[in-house]
């Protein structure tokens, strides 16, 4: 039972690039239908951790399980919708062509593909720009298209690496409400961020610094245990950076 309860289960995960330890003994659990946020400064190892959790990269030590299966495993990639930190789009193609390409990689075809493409483009408010070439998109539009591609095949687990960078507050709000709606439908979301106010919207939060997981709990619990008022202060407290 123990593994089946968590969507992501990382135990004593470490990652080394050459001689440099980038991640150190990280254990964490992401539960079904929650939004789990990874909060940490630039270079703290968020992207590296996310790649390990999705099985794109392999751990140097420890173990990652997704839905109870040890990663990396090819068949589990279907369960994950991954949005990388860089937009990773074919800029010579139109948005539609990009979506069709990735839909095909997930084996989606026919009317379902058409309907899903419409749906995800509405979610990210790009419905009117479907036929535009991506090199004519603005930075924020590319970000949203990238998110749309991650949502495309209705994965039970969404892994989003800084999904809202470059997106204006209004649109960010609406994307958040879509993500919450996905949570309500049972989708589990793991996202990274270094924006504090965004971190507070997560159900649970993992604070990461210098490749170590400082603490993981609900935002309010983290704040109260630290005896602080804000996430920002709590983060400094857990990092031992208080002087």
């Amino acid at each position: 039972m123990s593994h089946n309860e968590s969507v992501i289960q990382a135990t004593h995960v470490g990652k080394r690039f050459g001689k440099k330890m980038v991640l150190n003994d990280i254990s964490l659990e992401v539960r079904p239908a929650e939004t789990f946020g990874l909060l940490g400064p630039s270079g703290s190892g968020k992207t590296t951790l996310v790649k390990l959790l999705t099985g794109i990269d392999t751990v140097s030590s420890g173990e990652v399980r997704i839905f109870g299966t040890v990663m990396p495993k090819l068949s589990m990639l279907r369960q994950i919708g991954y949005m990388a930190q860089s937009d990773a789009l074919y800029t010579e193609l139109s948005a539609l062509e990009n979506l069709e390409f990735f839909a095909a990689l997930y084996g989606m075809k026919g009317p379902r593909r058409k309907i899903r493409i419409r749906e995800v483009m509405e979610i990210v408010a790009l419905g009117d720009d479907l036929h535009k070439r991506v090199d004519q998109y603005s930075g924020g539009m590319k970000r949203r298209l990238s998110l749309a591609i991650a949502l495309l095949h209705e994965p039970p687990l969404l892994v989003l690496d800084e999904p809202t960078v470059g997106i204006d507050p209004l649109l960010r709000q609406s994307i958040w409400s879509e993500l919450k709606a996905l949570n309500a439908k049972g989708t589990t979301i793991l996202m990274t961020t270094h924006v504090m106010d965004e971190a507070e919207k997560c159900d649970r939060l993992g604070m990461i610094r210098n490749g170590a997981l400082l603490a993981a709990d609900t935002p309010s619990a983290l704040i109260s245990q630290a005896g602080k008022q804000t996430i920002e202060e709590a983060f400094i407290y857990y990092g031992g950076g208080e002087s």
Binding site: T54, I56, L74, S75, L77, R78, I80, Y82, A84, S86, D87, A88, L89, Y90, T91, F102, L105, Y106, I149
Partner: peptide
Amino acid sequence: TGTLERLLSTPI
């Protein structure tokens, strides 16, 4: 451009 990483995050 990172599209290879994205490709490899699909079950291809």
